[in-house]
Amino acid sequence: MTDYDASALPDLTDRTIVITGASSGIGRATAAAFARAGAHVVLAVRDTTKGRAVASTLTGSVEVRPLDLADLVSVRSFAEQWTGPIDVLVANAGVSARSLTRTADGFELDFGTNHLGHFALTTLLLPRVRDRVVVVASQAERAARLDLDDPNWERRPYRSSRAYNDSKLANLLFVAELQRRLSTAGSAVRVLAAHPGLVTTSIYDLPDGARPGIWDHLLPRLGQDADQGALPTLYAATEDLPGDTFVGPQHLMHMRGGAQVIGRSRRAGDRELAARLWDVSERLTGITAPVA
């Protein structure tokens, strides 16, 4: 099988694509590829100075707008100020906290940013979306044990890796439930998930003063660069795929190279858990989705 690469992107002229977290890593690489293909690309970023610096290096039509997914006021402001159509919304931004940290609204940072921030943004912008939503998830969801009785780690001893894994499971459950609701409503909008594989981005950077372990030495050898990590997102955003498809790399147990449809854990396909997560997300964010 020939590896998928960015040269397979169709002409995206006259299409508007919004990408969260597009000022670095996979988001930046995704934005660059879409812009080269002719799309009007919106970098939705927390640091607009950094975003403008990145935009100045990209070829094509690019703009920068402020968005902090860890602050629902910022999320609402972004959505309220958006007036035009969106062809593709890419929920790319992600964090991995080293210790228990909370968002502006008091949510655990990983769950609050990776899931709740994107839940809020997507549901608020959904009436503007014409084609599809792509949520950047991860096969880390296979190690998740999402506790919806304590999603913000208020009663349990905090475990950073578990919190990240849980947020990635939440991403996949959100994709499944949103697609179910859209299909039931007769909408043609599709929702898909993308797993970038093992990518050497800043999410793996060591805290100041920390000693590198075996993993830190292996990552540069096993990991791929951001351009490769962006390929599953590009594939999910432009190929003719059904909703609720999960896309990941083609090699090394879906950790490196190209893009293809991949599987997910049984837990990620749990409809009851997905529906319950939706209810919890609406309650925590105070945002009710436009599709029931």
Rank of each mutant, 00 (worst) to 15 (best):
A259K: 05
T2P: 15
P232G: 08
V75Q: 02
R276S: 11
L72T: 10
L219W: 06
R181K: 13
R132V: 10
L173M: 04
L178P: 02
D3C: 10
P249F: 01
L218H: 09
F174A: 00
P220E: 09
L125H: 07
D68K: 04
A236T: 09
W215H: 04
G269D: 14
L172H: 02
P157C: 03
A144E: 05
A97S: 15
Y235I: 07
T285E: 12
F119W: 10
V95Q: 00
T16I: 14
A33K: 08
V64M: 07
D3S: 12
S265N: 07
N171Y: 03
Y235T: 07
D87H: 14
V90Y: 03
V261A: 10
V90L: 01
S7A: 15
S74Q: 09
A210R: 14
T57S: 15
E272K: 13
G27E: 12
T122V: 05
P127E: 06
E80I: 00
A91R: 01
G21V: 10
E282W: 05
P242A: 13
T48Y: 02
K168A: 11
N114R: 06
G197F: 00
A29Y: 01
S61T: 15
G94D: 10
P10E: 09
H115Y: 10
D150F: 06
P249Q: 13
Q260P: 00
A268Q: 06
R267P: 00
L198P: 08
G213D: 09
N152I: 10
T2Q: 11
